[in-house]
Design a protein around this nucleic acid. Structure first.
Length: 109
DNA sequence: CTCTTGACTGAGG
DNA sequence: GCCTCAGCCAAGA
């Protein structure tokens, strides 16, 4: 593997793809794992191209566990439906027991 | 090269 | 505990 050849976006996809079932992570956690902790915004921006890929973008939320990116999905509650289908409790666009379902790539990976 | 845009985050009021 | 401001980085025009 030559990550140097991969763009920042590609790295984000690579990490997002390995998020375990029933777990979620934050943009900042992914950015930190990539070495650019300050590029959390770019992580979300990268997810713009995740559409059509195998990247589970619905498992990526902001640090508060809030589904900030749900507006980028098709329906209004599609993202929440997907998370609930994995056993994650979501109420009012916010993940419940966030610290329990949280998955930190820099620690778990 | 310069400017704009973001699915963010931390600090301050 | 909520709201607002500013900083941060990468990609596209």
């Amino acid at each position: 593997m030559k990550p140097e050849t991969l763009s920042f976006f590609d790295k984000v996809y690579n990490v997002a793809k390995v998020i375990p079932y029933g777990r979620v992570t934050s943009y900042g956690a992914i950015a930190k794992y990539l070495g650019t902790a300050r590029s959390a915004r770019m992580v979300g921006y990268a997810m713009n191209g995740s559409s059509g890929k195998e990247v589970p973008a619905h498992r990526v939320v902001n640090r508060k566990g809030l589904l900030t990116g749900k507006h980028h999905f098709d329906g209004t509650n599609l993202m929440q439906q997907l998370l609930e289908s994995e056993g994650i409790v979501v109420v009012d666009n916010q993940i419940q027991n966030f610290d329990q379902v949280f998955w930190d790539p820099s620690k778990e990976l």
